[in-house]
């Protein structure tokens, strides 16, 4: 019985060994040709990313934690092209991004995109590409406002390629996040803090605490919901304003309670918007900020809150 089992084992092992040998031999012949075919199929896109380069070699990706990178090719003396697949709004998006050897994103080619026409497809527009191409691998990339799901997915994919590139070249990206940064604000017209626009509906100071030279105000200021929406139970927005009374300067400003339209008015809750307030002189009545396009009324409510905190 034991002898029989041994006989079977040896027979199958021998056969499998022979089979393995045959496969290894055929593989050694066909693998280079298959590789070349794969590059030939991608070459159309590779040349778009690295015009003027004709020598490409496949690059094995081993340390991609995100799993987004499908394949990569080194362009001789030029850089690396990554083929990336990410999940978009409804369907997977396949694209290629080229990174030059000096760490610049040189091209973005969207290969397969089936997201909503007119919204997700905006990642193919120059508006998005210009935002990406030319950046270095350590620059943060912003999603497209209004198409955040699709553009965010593409950026997560680009970030995976950037991370791999930085890793392989030993570039320190400060452990850059995988997520896209919030899109930059589009500012509208400037509005004076002490202009007529802020005079119409005075803000109300809810709380005032002083700690040495620094005074912190909690200010309720009527925004779109109260002034123009006219909803029942509409509430003003509440801002926290910190003012240094000795230097007569605004230290910081933030949104504590938001009661206007979600998706519009809350655009003002952006570092670029708050940065405008920092350092404004409280004894100068010509100070002004730029409102946010699409969130004008809410932005003016912020200006009004500051006026309320500074006082007349």
């Amino acid at each position: 019985m034991f002898k029989k089992a041994l006989h079977f084992t040896v027979f199958l092992a021998l056969l499998s060994g022979l089979a393995g040998g045959a496969l290894a031999y055929v593989n050694s012949i066909t693998a280079p040709i298959i590789n070349e075919n794969a590059i030939a199929a991608e070459k159309v896109n590779l040349v778009k990313l690295f015009p003027g380069t004709s020598e490409f070699a496949p690059l094995e990706i081993t340390n991609d934690e995100t799993g987004f990178i499908q394949s990569a090719y080194t362009a001789k003396d030029a850089g690396i092209a990554y083929k990336v697949q990410v999940m978009g709004y409804a369907n997977p998006i396949v694209f290629m991004v080229g990174i030059s050897n000096d760490g610049k994103i040189v091209g973005l080619e969207i290969l397969d995109l089936r997201d909503t026409a007119g919204i997700g497809t905006r990642v193919e527009d120059p508006e998005f590409k210009d935002n990406v191409v030319g950046k270095t691998t350590t620059d943060p990339l912003a999603a497209l406002s209004g198409a955040t799901v699709t553009s965010g997915a593409v950026i997560r994919g680009i970030n995976a390629a950037k991370a791999h590139f930085n890793d392989s070249k030993g570039i320190d990206d400060g452990g850059g996040s995988d997520d896209p940064v919030t899109p930059p604000l589009v500012f509208g017209d400037p509005v004076g803090i002490f202009s007529n626009a802020t005079a119409s509906a005075p803000a109300e100071i809810l709380e005032e605490t002083t700690d040495g030279d620094v005074t912190t105000y909690l200010v309720a200021s009527k925004g779109y919901a109260v002034l123009e929406g006219g909803y029942e139970g509409a509430k003003p927005n509440v801002f926290k304003i910190v003012i240094n009374t000795a230097e007569k300067k605004v230290v910081s400003m933030e949104l504590v309670e938001f009661n206007d339209t979600t998706g519009l008015g809350d655009k003002i809750d952006h570092e670029d918007f708050w940065a405008q307030f920092e350092g404004l002189a409280t004894d100068d009545d010509s100070i002004e900020i730029d409102v946010v396009s699409g969130a004008t009324v809410t932005a003016i409510s912020a200006a009004r809150a500051l006026r309320g905190a500074i006082g007349e």
Binding site: T30, I33, I34
Partner: peptide, 8 residues
Amino acid sequence: IVEMLIQA
């Protein structure tokens, strides 16, 4: 083997 040959 046939698959590899076809692919190549």
